[in-house]
Amino acid sequence: MCGGTGAAGPAKVLGTEDVDERGRLIVEQIPRLRRYARALTGDADRADDLVQDCLERAWGKFHLWRSGSNLRAWLFTIMHNLHVNSRRRVAIRPAVVSLSDWVEDRGIAPNQEKAAEVKGVTAALHLLPDDQRAVLLLIALEDMSYQDVARILDIPIGTVMSRLSRGRERLRQLLAAGEAGTAGRMSQR
């Protein structure tokens, strides 16, 4: 157990011999990164691509992570930045979609976009603005502290609270409307 350099304190200092330890620490976080990415993007493939990119970047930059600081928040920060970047790229250069995919998509989407038709939290989540969805998920699903969320998203804590509030309120309306819609159709039968 001993053999440390004697630096007392809660922060464990990782040396180069601790590659396995670093690996273990990162791998431990992967399930949660995947859960968040899936909920955020609503698409399993895109989510895993995002996690993969995040991990590669984290490995490359691992020496910059100060051991003892919050590894999870660091990883989520990297992933958030990658997500923002990828959205920016998408916005600049819209993805080319084949006509048949487009027609297929349109066949399903218009109904889902009507709030009255929304069923389930997954569908409702994707009617929230991206910013509100990120804050809501980090807090309500990932149980992050408000301070960590402010740091991860690089926004003031007041903005975290207002996005949380708007996100929750909107989600509540969407879910209530969805239930009302379902109940309405059922009572018509």
């Binding site: 791998v27 992967i30 399930p31 859960r35 389930g120 939290v121 997954t122 809501l136 699903l141 929750r168």
Partner: peptide, 29 residues
């Protein structure tokens, strides 16, 4: 209703936590 949202989110996404990890993620690049 806010509490219910938390529960609904966990019900919808917690199964991902126990999915096996893709090999590409576990391996150091």
């Amino acid at each position: 209703s806010y509490r219910a949202q938390r529960v609904a989110l966990h019900e919808a996404f917690d199964s991902i936590l126990s999915e096996p990890l893709p090999a590409s993620m576990v391996r150091r690049p």
